[in-house]
Design a binder for these strands. Sequence first.
DNA 1: ATAAATAAAGACAATTTTATCTTTATTTAT
DNA 2: ATAAATAAAGATAAAATTGTCTTTATTTAT
Lengths: 155, 155
Amino acid sequence: MFSKTAEYALRATIYIAQKSSEDNKLGIEEIAKSIDAPRSFTAKILQLLTKDNEVISSVRGPNGGFYITEKAKGLSIRTILETIKEDDVFTKCVLGLKACSEAQPCPMHFQYKPIKQQLIRLFETKTIRDLAKELKTGERFLANFRPRKKTRVTK
Amino acid sequence: MFSKTAEYALRATIYIAQKSSEDNKLGIEEIAKSIDAPRSFTAKILQLLTKDNEVISSVRGPNGGFYITEKAKGLSIRTILETIKEDDVFTKCVLGLKACSEAQPCPMHFQYKPIKQQLIRLFETKTIRDLAKELKTGERFLANFRPRKKTRVTK
DNA sequence: ATAAATAAAGACAATTTTATCTTTATTTAT
DNA sequence: ATAAATAAAGATAAAATTGTCTTTATTTAT
């Protein structure tokens, strides 16, 4: 569904939102490791998202790193995808027809329409904060490996 | 959502299903033109789909070309995508997490799940024949340009 | 002021996807 | 049998995506 770029962008953003704050910034090393993505590539993607500090904020130097403001946490997941220009799913025809429209629908158009609308609704409704919150409960995961079995506490 | 390969595969298959029969085969030239796809690339993709004549059938030589058997027209749209290995949408995690599962869900998992299921249902339910039929009514389009305005019949 | 730590920027490289071109094999019609 | 028409196969190339490395700019702590 999404490109690697989009996947890493989403994972990184959610991770940063969960773990960071203005006075607890995260380094690229930690971020990349935590979301199981290539370090330098992730850095490049974050550069896109830090343009004008719109989605992600960053500062350089010691104790620098990435974080997300409370305000930015209110942005929708779709916004992340729009920022990196990966929002084709929401706008394009399933069959890739430029001319596909309500007036000149492709054979999938009307059947796909309600699904697409749900997709849009989901990605527009869900905020960065929402996803970060879910993650915090420990019932959702970003790490790409099996969790260690809960060590049973023996008396 | 889909790669160019998948888009062309779907368009070509639907087109062939609508226009061809065992004794009216279509040449690659016509197919590519009709679905607005690069000729040689489309040929390559059709090669994948004609493997074992499973989805699309072909014969070489004069009056040769591509067609789809009545039996194959009963195949689902998902089958086309599976044949060319473009069915990630139906199987992979939205965030690209290999470890994502019911037991270790990503933050999007449960919200995305019903949408994914509808997607699967749509692509598994719809057959090649269904889409070809819709196309035949003239109320659906594959061509990627605006239709000429209906010439008004004057007395 | 200097050194250290960090992200940003830029150049490059590898891989995958998309696309084209040429040659070969097959089939049909003559 | 031969020529013509077609798809199949293979080789190559262009473009896009994914990934890495090096240098630069910025910030902080000393």
